[in-house]
Amino acid sequence: MYEPIRTKSVHTPVGSADFPHRSREEELDIQLAGHLGALLAVTDELRGLESSADLDAAAERLATEVARLRGGRPPVRTSSGLHEPRLVALHERAHALAGRALVVAASRADTAAAILAAERMDAHAAALAGTARELAPH
């Protein structure tokens, strides 16, 4: 009575079998590497403005984590001539990026990246609190 369907459905994307699909874990790795890479870029900017052993150590740990998440490929790092960016804005941006990285690291149960992101959030929150005290009227 009915003839069997011999062609693919029009709803099946062309070449979908050939398209490489990533797992949720791979997608989270990519997302986490992106957040940590952005945090590394801000950390490098801060290092250019204020020398700190904490920032140096954080930059190296961030670079190591990004390389691990990217299958051993190290992150691209640039040293740009900065034109007086505001420290507060950089610390705020770094705090927000560390928070995003923490959320992704927690969702994929990556303890090392979660600890690193939480430590960076604390460090940037402390720097922001110190800046607020300096700017407060005496």
Rank of each mutant, 00 (worst) to 15 (best):
L62F: 12
V104D: 11
D122S: 14
S51M: 09
D56M: 14
G99H: 07
A106H: 12
R61D: 14
D29V: 03
A127P: 00
A105S: 06
H91M: 06
E60H: 15
R108Y: 07
E26M: 11
D18I: 02
A136E: 08
R22Q: 08
D54W: 15
D56A: 14
E92R: 04
H91N: 08
T7M: 04
H35G: 01
E92G: 02
A123G: 04
R68I: 00
F19V: 03
S23L: 14
A117N: 11
V42T: 13
H83L: 10
P4F: 09
H124P: 00
A67L: 02
A94R: 13
A101S: 09
E27P: 11
E60I: 04
D56H: 15
A59V: 04
G15D: 09
F19Q: 09
A94W: 04
A67P: 00
H138T: 07
E45R: 13
E134Y: 01
G71E: 05
A109C: 05
V14Y: 06
A113L: 07
P137K: 13
V14T: 05
M121V: 03
A136C: 02
V103L: 10
A113E: 10
H21W: 11
V42I: 15
L97M: 07
S23R: 14
R61F: 12
L40C: 04
G72E: 08
A63R: 15
H91G: 02
R22Y: 15
L39R: 12
A126N: 10
V76N: 05
L55E: 01
A118G: 06
D54R: 15
L87G: 00
